[in-house]
């Protein structure tokens, strides 16, 4: 019943990512986190070449997405960058690993990372029409079949 407690702090803090430049920065951080999470996996090459951030920004800005979770994700992207003195994007693999594991020590941090991983899964394992799982490449890498019929339209376009 306390599912949203982890969101509460993000609603109180003033640094919500609301301008286009801060939002762009937040998405940059999120993309870098996803790239890091999928480094050394079979998905690495495909993920680096996919427009995951396009998918994420489109879906989380749709009214069907929980606005509190969206605010939480974007806010913590900036917060994470801030507490690491804006060095994350240029850090080495090991540097990024240290920063992420450091942030993960806090429950808020772990929840944020979980939400990002979830968005990444949504991007790569959703139907091909959503633009990331092109020609079912991520389903093939996992060795699974999606359901049939596969959607021909994205819900966000209907």
């Amino acid at each position: 019943m306390q599912r949203r407690e982890f969101l509460s702090i993000s609603l109180l803090l003033p640094t919500l990512a609301n301008s286009s430049s801060t939002q762009a920065k937040a998405y940059q951080i999120i993309e870098a986190v996803i790239h890091h999470m999928f480094t050394h996996t079979r998905y690495q090459k495909a993920i680096f070449g996919a427009n995951i951030i396009g998918f994420i920004s489109t879906t989380i800005n749709h009214l069907s997405y929980d606005k509190d979770i969206k605010a939480f994700i974007l806010h913590h992207a900036l917060e994470f960058d801030k507490v690491n003195n804006h060095t994350f994007l240029d850090a080495s693999y090991f540097g990024k690993e240290m920063m992420l594991r450091g942030y993960e020590r806090y429950p808020m941090g772990q929840n944020w990372l979980y939400q990002i991983q979830l968005l990444a899964f949504e991007a790569i394992y959703s139907a091909p029409v959503y633009g990331v799982n092109v020609e079912k490449k991520f389903w093939k890498l996992l060795g699974v079949e999606g359901g049939k019929p596969s959607p021909q339209k994205r819900y966000i376009d209907v």
Binding site: H62, S64, E122, S126, G146, P149, S150, P151
Partner: peptide, 17 residues
Amino acid sequence: FSKDELAYTRRNITTPN
């Protein structure tokens, strides 16, 4: 109807916001 996991099970497009 399709087997759109994102639409039906994650965004619940058939229930109100």
